[in-house]
């Protein structure tokens, strides 16, 4: 068996990065993002990237650091509202942007990884999203054709993984990671805990190892919180 395990993010990306490539990056907001791999791409200085990710991080963290390094040429996202630098670069014409409805983005990636070149959805019919795309009627309702999406490289984040590349995600940090794992020509996974093969419950593996080419345990996970919302302790007694 090919050895998939690497020691660091830069080792895991060795020989994979090139200018102008398309990268899928998992995560929703800052939740479940491959922060070690993003930092390594920043360090490598790879340029003219097309990045497919639901969001684009925040200023100075997540994919935001690749914007800071002027490494991204184009973003394919559903929502980018949390990032001032993004806005500046976009308004200055230095960044291309393609908005996809979130569910369409998720399904395009799922389809890309599953060998489905296109599909029809009712999301976006009659809106700007459908412009220039084939619209077809099925059973009396109109649907718009969307294309499957693939990438040269998928960078994803999981909670636990093993040397086979089997992955388990944690809570809402799963989000786009499982589909992106299937849609990259090369998929690199960073995990919080590398566990011995055989210790993950085989019935509870979210991403089977076939989709993962390289895997490493991240050095540190900052796991920054975007909107910390809590309720006061006093309520606890009241309940």
């Amino acid at each position: 068996m090919a050895d998939k395990v690497r020691n660091t993010a830069s080792e895991a990306l060795d020989g994979v990065l090139r200018d102008g490539m398309t990268i899928m990056a998992g995560g929703f907001g800052l939740c479940g993002i491959p922060e070690n791999l993003i930092a390594a791409i920043h360090e490598a200085g790879t340029k003219n990237l097309t990045v497919i990710s639901n969001n684009c991080g925040v200023d100075g963290f997540g994919l935001g650091i690749l914007l800071g390094g002027a490494q991204i040429k184009k973003m394919i996202s559903s929502y980018v509202g949390e990032n001032k630098l993004f806005e500046q670069l976009y308004l200055a014409g230095e960044l291309e942007l393609e908005f996809n409805p979130q569910g369409t983005l998720a399904e395009r990636i799922r389809a890309g990884g599953a060998g489905i070149p296109a599909f029809f959805t009712k999301t976006g019919v009659g809106t700007l999203v459908a412009e220039g795309k084939e619209v077809r009627e099925f059973d009396g309702e109109r649907y718009v054709m969307e294309r499957g999406l693939k990438a040269d490289l998928s960078i994803i984040k999981a909670w636990k993984g093993d040397a086979e590349g089997n992955l388990v995600y944690r809570k809402t940090a799963r989000n786009f990671n499982p589909m992106m794992a299937t849609a990259g020509a090369v998929t690199v996974a960073e995990i919080e805990q590398l566990v011995p093969v055989g210790t993950l419950d085989k019935d509870e593996i979210h991403t089977p190892g076939i989709y993962v080419d390289r895997i490493f345990q991240g050095a540190t996970f900052e796991k920054r919180i975007e909107q910390l919302t809590t309720r006061p302790r006093a309520e606890k007694e009241a309940v």
């Binding site: 907001g29 800052l30 639901n54 998720a106 799963r174 919180i225 910390l228 919302t229």
Partner: peptide
């Protein structure tokens, strides 16, 4: 969550920290 119990892996679509219930389930965006 109560103060001090926020989990960065558990947020809602507004990116706010939340909690789970006994009946909750998690799944992918697809």
């Amino acid at each position: 969550p109560y103060e001090g119990e926020a989990d960065p892996d558990l947020i809602n679509a507004g990116k706010q920290t939340i909690t789970e219930l006994a009946s909750s389930s998690y799944f992918s965006s697809a």
